[in-house]
Amino acid sequence: MGTVLSAADLRKGLKLEIDGEPYLVVDFEFSKPGKGQALYRCRLKNMITGAQFDRTYRSGDKFNGADLEEQDMQFLYEQGDKYHFMSTSTYEQLELTGDQVGDARNYLTENLMVGMLLFQGRPIGINLPNFVELKVLQADPWIKGDTASGATKPVTLETGFVVQVPLFIEEGQVIKLDTRTGSYVEKVKSA
């Protein structure tokens, strides 16, 4: 159980628990119409499913803060539909399902450090670093002078993720990706 909070504690960024699930306050406004009572209008985001909805709280309302923590963990391997992670401090291992990992799977390579989100001690998902570096597994060769087909081409990365990159990127090269947008940032110079 998280700490008991009241409506006056509400603000953007607060995490609370509703029906056993963790929610993040993504938007907040204090209202007090005319001679009326204080109303606390929130947009809430389910931290597991990402679904958003609006809820208005009143002065006397009480609720529980979400018991949520983030722990640094290393991605080990994928087997079947299970993704295995290990804490680098305690060597404790945890697993997530493919659904829990979601689109983050596109960026997971062995030994990548991620933030494991634990709700009431249970793993519910991961936060990726903003940028990752991935190797290009397959790319069509660049024919010099071929600019007619546009400025980008699709390549397949080592995780199986297909991304649009500039024409000069070749097989075997390493590129930097922004995990928040899924887009190409730059070519990483080979060591």
């Binding site: 119409p33 009326g36 009572q37 109303l39 209008r41 208005t56 009143r58």
Partner: peptide
């Protein structure tokens, strides 16, 4: 009901 009135005022009318 005052509460219903105020919530609708804030969310829908104002």
């Amino acid at each position: 009901d005052q509460e219903a009135f105020e919530v609708a005022l804030v969310e829908k009318v104002e």
